[in-house]
Design a protein around this nucleic acid. Structure first.
Lengths: 212, 212
DNA sequence: GGATGTGAAGTCGTTCACAGCT
DNA sequence: AGCTGTGAACGACTTCACATCC
């Protein structure tokens, strides 16, 4: 499955369509037009059609799209039709919160390992509170655990000054997808994909718009 | 301060430059060229210059930029030269984690109120663990507390099905900036600014790129 | 009739090349 | 000599209009 020139913005919107379609489906919607989907997602109708057109033809002219089918197609396009097995490195407050983040489960994202350099008696206390048993491992075991548990995505929730080191360990362990929450730029070799989630960048954006 | 046609991407990069400049400064860097800053931020040099050019002239030809001055200028442009007072609504795992998120403090973002519909004896237990005293208030008091404490930004960390309701309350309370972590599209009237942080969207993006 | 699919037009953002300072 | 600042070229994404099909 290889599509050359798909804008990243299209992929982000696909994710949004998917979320909206789930809600539409939950309300019993069977057929949906690009205009309806667009208004629910706060984009415009031609954009919806154009985005889908990158990947094929999913609608019926004069009718619209079957919500269920379209949802499945979009998930397949996104690669969300399989289970993605993830590890979290850094079980502080944020890491622990993500560990028990329910929306991951609804989608096909599953956290199958948790790592921290702090001894388990500290991190263990945190994990009990979340009501879900966590076995917290030392990052030195990352490579072997990754192999054992088929981990494909690593989530970095360490402090900034340890993020690059952890990223290197993930690369070493051949984890090609990295989701970085640490507020610092991290580097990875060609072939590895790093996506950042920087809360303060979004806040800076808000602040800018509020100041204007 | 009003600049008409600045791309959003530029604002996001400005935020990134700011983070990199702090690191450069921490290492004792006094003068920095667009090429150096660019390589640290993983963009290219003309882009850095163009981004800054939207707002004025900050460098010295033949020399570069004074790191400290540029940092201050960028913060001023972003509106990050003042303290932004924020409220969190939804003190579950994620809300609690954000409450004690240290990077907010380093920047000028301060959480001055926490809300939850659950009774304090439940949420109180969570708050103790974080080592920072939290007085958790009921959302019904949002409007008055907002006025008392000069809150300008609201952070929504409730479940998806309550997000729009909370957003309405924020609008009612005249909170113009909303940072939404709930995985659902929320609406607000003209003049209010909503920025979403959707973890699964970023994961979907990763999954797409890993599948390609 | 009505909504999709899509080339073409238009808009927006990035890259380039070089003029302009220091 | 070196690096910034910037108009102009380029490329990418979005919008539009309409031909196409149910």
């Amino acid at each position: 499955m290889k599509f050359s020139k798909v804008p990243e913005a299209t992929i982000r919107r696909l994710s949004r369509y998917s979320r909206c379609l789930e809600q539409i489906q939950a309300k019993g919607g069977q057929v949906v037009s690009s205009a309806q989907l667009a208004s629910k997602c706060a984009v415009n109708a031609p954009q919806v059609r154009k985005d889908l057109a990158y990947f094929g033809q999913f609608g019926i002219r004069g009718v619209g799209y079957y919500a269920g089918d379209l949802l499945l197609d979009i998930k397949r396009i996104l690669g969300a039709d399989k289970e993605w097995r993830m590890a979290i490195i850094g079980m502080g407050n944020l890491g622990s919160a993500l560990y028990s983040y329910k929306d991951f489960l609804k989608q096909n994202y599953k956290i199958v390992a948790a790592f921290d350099i702090n001894p388990p008696q500290i991190t263990g206390r945190i994990s009990e509170k979340l009501g879900k048993p966590i076995e917290i491992l030392h990052p030195d075991t990352l490579k072997e655990v990754t192999k054992e548990r088929n981990i494909e995505i690593g989530i970095i929730t360490t402090p900034a000054d340890q993020a690059q080191k952890v990223a290197n360990q993930l690369v070493e362990a051949n984890v090609r997808g990295i989701l970085n929450f640490a507020p610092t730029q991290i580097e990875a070799p060609e072939g590895y994909i790093v996506k950042d989630v920087f809360f303060t960048t979004v806040l800076d954006n808000l602040a800018y718009l509020l100041s204007a």
